[in-house]
Computed example of a mutant assay.
Amino acid sequence: MDRLDALRLFVRTVETGSFTRAGHEVGVSQPQASRAVAGLEARLGARLLLRSTRRLSPTEAGQRVYEQALRLLTEESALVEVAAGADREPAGRLRVSGSVVFCEDEIAPHAGSFLEAFPRVRLDLLATDARVDLVAEGVDLALRLGGLADSGLTARRLGRYGRWMVATREVADRVAEAADLATGLAGRSLAFTGGPQGPVRWRLRRGDDRLELEPTGRASSASAALVHRMAREGLGVALLPAFAVRRCLAEGRLVRVAPEWEGEPVELHALWSGRVLPGKARAFLDHLTPRLTVERP
Rank of each mutant, 00 (worst) to 15 (best):
R144D: 08
R160V: 02
A136M: 07
E116R: 15
P119A: 10
D150W: 08
R122C: 08
G159I: 09
D133R: 07
S113Y: 00
R88I: 09
L158N: 04
R144I: 12
E89Y: 02
V101D: 11
E76Y: 00
A136N: 05
A86M: 07
G162R: 15
I107D: 04
F118N: 15
R160Q: 01
V132N: 07
V139K: 04
S99N: 10
V96M: 13
C103Q: 11
L134I: 12
L143V: 00
E106H: 09
E137D: 06
T154Q: 11
P119F: 07
A127S: 14
A84F: 02
F102L: 05
V100A: 09
L148D: 14
V82G: 03
V135E: 04
G152L: 10
G85C: 12
G147K: 11
L148W: 10
A142Q: 03
R120E: 10
L145Y: 06
E106K: 07
D150C: 01
R156S: 12
A78V: 02
R163E: 14
L145N: 01
A91N: 05
R157V: 09
A142H: 10
P109V: 06
F114R: 10
D133T: 06
A111T: 03
G162Q: 13
F118P: 00
E116Y: 04
E76I: 08
A142N: 08
A136K: 08
L79A: 06
A78F: 04
G152K: 14
C103H: 10
L125C: 00
L145C: 04
F102D: 03
S97Y: 13
L145P: 02
E89S: 03
V80D: 15
E89L: 08
D150R: 14
V135P: 01
V101I: 05
V82Y: 01
H110A: 07
Y161G: 02
F102A: 03
D87L: 13
R163P: 03
A142L: 07
F114H: 01
G138M: 11
F102E: 00
S97F: 09
E137T: 05
P109F: 13
V135S: 14
L145E: 13
R95A: 13
R160T: 04
L141Q: 12
